[in-house]
Amino acid sequence: MTTSAQESAQESAQESTGESARQSEQQSQRESVFDLIGELLVEKFEVPSAELRREAPMRDLLTDSLMIVEMAICVHETLGVKVEEGELRGTALGEFAEIVAARRTGR
């Protein structure tokens, strides 16, 4: 028979394990969203893959206004997440991927 203290410690350990699993799942989801957005940029807009750095401003990757509108459609279609054109203009690639990942998780 376990003491209530032991039970509590076990629960806490289980919670902690669950929490870290969730965190790592979120982490890998963020990674995959980053990769998916990178693929869109390369395949649909001929952005050289060397330019796909987290700190690269999206407006430098998508060099005209039509690309921004098209990218919003691509993200909506491929990742099922609606993004505003303003979000595409005002973020860096890493930050944009975070926004999309968060919105995906929150769905």
Binding site: E43, K44, F45, E46, V47, T63, D64, L66, M67, E70
Partner: peptide
């Protein structure tokens, strides 16, 4: 045809 935007 390899310029940025060509696929469109």
């Amino acid at each position: 045809l390899r310029r940025r935007g060509s696929a469109r």
